[in-house]
């Protein structure tokens, strides 16, 4: 891919990001930060390339180190987001529904 096509994707994605993020409800801004954290660890892709490549021992070890760090973030980020989102509940008909939820 040439630089201009990559740049186009980048600029378009910035606009998409702008509109999508404004539509996020303020009540979910903390989960938003946690999940953006998790997805920015897509940098693991670069780390995998480095750790799989031959030719430079230093490069592979740096890559493996980055795989560990990014994995902490991916698993931690998605798990903590899921944990938070599961807490957001609507007003429910008291006892009955709560018991059903509890039994699940």
């Amino acid at each position: 891919m040439d630089f201009i096509s990559i740049l186009s994707i980048f600029v378009m994605a910035c606009f998409v990001g702008y509109y999508v993020v404004w539509s996020v409800t303020p009540a979910l801004h903390t989960p938003l930060m946690a999940v953006t954290n998790a997805i920015s660890s897509v940098i693991i892709v670069g780390a995998l390339v480095a750790s799989a490549a031959t030719g430079s021992i230093g490069s592979s070890w740096l890559g493996l180190g980055a795989v560990v760090l990014a994995s902490v973030n991916i698993f931690g980020g998605f798990a903590v987001t899921a944990r938070m989102l599961a807490m957001y509940k609507k007003k429910d008909k008291p006892a009955v529904k709560a018991a059903v939820e509890g039994a699940k």
Binding site: A13, V16, Y18, V21, S40, V42, V45
Partner: peptide, 14 residues
């Protein structure tokens, strides 16, 4: 890498 660029732009604007 498109996935990284899109993500970076999303997270950056967020």
């Amino acid at each position: 890498n498109t996935a990284m660029i899109i993500t970076g732009a999303l997270v950056g604007s967020s």
